[in-house]
Amino acid sequence: MSDAVLSIRPATPGDVSLILQLIHELAEYEQLADTVKATADSLHLQLFGQRPVAEVLIGEVDGAAAGFALFFHNFSTFTGKRGLYLEDIFVRPAFRGAGLGKQLMAALARIAVQRDCARFEWSVLDWNTPSIAFYRSLGAIGMDEWTVQRLEGAALHALAARDEL
């Protein structure tokens, strides 16, 4: 694939089905296929509705959809600036090794710089050593002193229902 033509473009509403398909492929790779709840309608609303909350880049190899990166902005109170948070990046196995992952990461870094973001962050599963090695090769550092916390489902609703101050 050394002569392959790589391209990165912003997703359009016509890409929603492709994005959903890539999400399912990513979930399969991460052994989380049974956790995907996204639908074409929910993605369309959240990515292209009246108040989009995330953006997607589509990576192509020789014009074929080969991967994606879904990202959004967060905010750092310490820097007083927004950051760019990469929720998911995925390159289909048949296209790995062509440099598309690096191109997607570089495109995201350019967006972060152009938008005056203080940082560009993401999470990676502990067992995913190929991805960790890839990120380290780009200069990323692990934030080992931080542990992700999450509320969802019943616990989220129970906390939301609490009314005592």
Rank of each mutant, 00 (worst) to 15 (best):
S2K: 08
S2W: 03
D3M: 14
D3P: 10
A4D: 02
V5E: 14
V5W: 09
L6N: 03
L6F: 10
L6C: 06
S7Y: 05
S7L: 04
S7H: 02
S7I: 00
I8S: 03
I8H: 06
I8F: 11
I8P: 09
I8G: 05
R9T: 03
R9V: 00
P10Q: 14
P10Y: 07
P10G: 02
A11Q: 01
A11S: 05
T12C: 12
T12A: 15
P13E: 02
G14I: 01
G14K: 00
D15G: 01
D15W: 00
V16M: 12
S17F: 07
S17Q: 08
L18N: 15
L18I: 14
L18S: 14
I19T: 02
L20F: 11
L20R: 01
L20K: 00
L20E: 05
L20H: 05
L20I: 02
Q21L: 05
Q21T: 08
Q21I: 02
Q21N: 14
Q21K: 09
L22G: 05
L22F: 13
L22T: 00
I23F: 15
I23M: 14
I23A: 11
E25R: 10
E25K: 10
L26F: 08
L26S: 06
L26V: 05
L26H: 04
A27C: 12
A27G: 13
E28S: 15
E28V: 14
E28A: 15
Y29G: 07
Y29D: 09
E30I: 11
E30V: 04
E30A: 08
Q31F: 12
Q31H: 14
Q31R: 15
A33L: 11
A33M: 08
A33G: 14
A33P: 05
D34K: 13
D34R: 08
